[in-house]
Amino acid sequence: MNYIKNDFLESNDYYKERETLRNLMLQIVMCQDIDFLFYNHFYLKAKNQYPKDFKSGTLLEDEFTYILSEVEMNSLLDENSSDNYKRILNRKYSSFHNDVRLFQLKFQEQEYDFDMVRLFIEFMYSIQYMFKNYNPNRQVKGLSIDIKNFYLSKNRQLLQELVKDLEWRAGRLNYLNRFDYIPEDKEFMKWVSCVFRSGIGLINEDKFKENSNEIYALMVPKFIEKIPFETFCGIFSSSMRAFPAKISWGTSLNSLRYFIKHLQDLGKTKNNKNFKVVEELFVCNGNRITKLSNNKSMTTEASELDSIIQLF
């Protein structure tokens, strides 16, 4: 799978490019999930590149799992295929190594050196933490145990090489230990709390884009506690992306249910599976949201939410 980089490193905005690199790092971490990797590689390739008559696999939206077709399975195991799973992994890691190198070359020896040291240490901790706590509890149908074990072993090797590269880069920036920096547990946990998934897919994406500033002003901070505009827009995007932390809904749960249900009922969304998206992305009063669809009490904010929904 190739990265969708957009304009990565075309700007001189260090903080913008830093967030892009952080999102790319999270994609690397998610390589530990075999289903996630194959979903991204084969589903997006089938959607964008394969001819229409190609026998692609099946996407199970509830589990975000992609079931490989026989043709894809054969290409995955074919040593000479560009879709061979070893080559997929090698391309992803090689691309990210290069992204990190170019990022450092562009911004080093400026006022960002200390922040870059922190960034590379963050990547090292996040990668090692997530790998240590990874539990491969999903299955890929059709792949043997030997293939799965080889995949995980190869991924572990590439992760370790990446950690060493990041450690070397942090040390090179921090020559003579000019930055005395040890991350605290609270800061570390912030690094590994990202949610990586797609948001709510909208039917009329152009209309949302046109009205997004107005929608943002109406919803933030009254209904959604203060978040960056780009993160807000990500809530209503069907593309996979990283959310730095759970998003806090600022009013009652019944108003959140009303908002999501009426977006669906009025045909504003691509499917009717958005309660799951919301339950994974949002918290309310600091608490995890579960069984949102069962919260059927009326909200006093219906009229205000109706006006917002019309902008979608």
Rank of each mutant, 00 (worst) to 15 (best):
residue 2 N to P: 15
residue 210 E to H: 10
residue 107 F to K: 01
residue 257 R to M: 01
residue 252 S to M: 05
residue 69 S to E: 12
residue 215 I to H: 08
residue 237 S to G: 06
residue 53 D to K: 12
residue 289 I to A: 11
residue 230 E to R: 03
residue 110 Q to K: 15
residue 220 V to M: 02
residue 33 D to F: 04
residue 44 L to R: 14
residue 201 G to P: 13
residue 163 V to I: 15
residue 119 L to I: 13
residue 83 D to R: 00
residue 70 E to D: 13
residue 131 F to D: 12
residue 143 L to S: 05
residue 284 C to A: 12
residue 42 F to C: 07
residue 109 E to C: 11
residue 62 D to I: 11
residue 252 S to G: 09
residue 20 T to V: 15
residue 178 R to K: 10
residue 198 S to Q: 08
residue 233 C to K: 12
residue 16 K to C: 05
residue 139 Q to H: 05
residue 266 L to F: 03
residue 172 R to Y: 15
residue 159 L to Q: 05
residue 38 F to R: 00
residue 14 Y to R: 06
residue 75 S to Y: 02
residue 28 I to G: 12
residue 228 P to C: 15
residue 115 D to T: 09
residue 29 V to N: 10
residue 289 I to D: 11
residue 122 E to G: 14
residue 193 S to D: 10
residue 158 L to Y: 00
residue 99 D to V: 02
residue 294 N to E: 12
residue 22 R to H: 01
residue 301 E to Q: 12
residue 130 M to V: 03
residue 31 C to S: 12
residue 141 K to P: 01
residue 40 N to H: 10
residue 212 S to W: 02
residue 176 L to P: 02
residue 306 D to Q: 02
residue 130 M to I: 02
residue 187 E to V: 03
residue 240 M to G: 07
residue 231 T to W: 08
residue 138 R to N: 07
residue 136 P to L: 03
residue 178 R to C: 09
residue 79 E to A: 06
residue 24 L to A: 07
residue 7 D to A: 06
residue 310 Q to V: 05
residue 135 N to G: 06
residue 287 N to R: 14
residue 133 N to K: 07
residue 293 S to A: 03
residue 40 N to P: 08
residue 247 I to S: 12
residue 51 P to G: 09
residue 163 V to A: 14
residue 282 F to K: 08
residue 311 L to S: 11
residue 160 Q to S: 13
residue 19 E to W: 09
residue 205 E to I: 11
residue 277 V to M: 00
residue 159 L to E: 07
residue 119 L to Y: 10
residue 260 I to F: 03
residue 295 N to M: 02
residue 285 N to E: 15
residue 224 I to P: 03
residue 225 E to G: 04
residue 224 I to H: 01
residue 237 S to K: 01
residue 71 V to Y: 11
residue 216 Y to H: 06
residue 95 S to N: 10
residue 116 M to V: 13
residue 142 G to E: 02
residue 11 S to R: 01
residue 234 G to R: 00
residue 268 K to Q: 03
residue 41 H to K: 13
residue 52 K to D: 13
residue 47 K to N: 06
residue 172 R to H: 12
residue 106 K to E: 07
residue 142 G to P: 09
residue 158 L to W: 00
residue 252 S to L: 03
residue 148 K to M: 10
residue 119 L to C: 13
residue 311 L to R: 08
residue 62 D to V: 13
residue 246 K to V: 06
residue 185 D to K: 11
residue 42 F to S: 07
residue 221 P to H: 02
residue 104 Q to M: 14
residue 53 D to E: 13
residue 268 K to E: 00
residue 280 E to A: 10
residue 115 D to C: 15
residue 141 K to R: 04
residue 204 N to C: 11
residue 200 I to Q: 06
residue 238 S to D: 15
residue 105 L to Y: 14
residue 182 I to L: 10
residue 228 P to A: 15
residue 146 D to T: 04
residue 38 F to M: 11
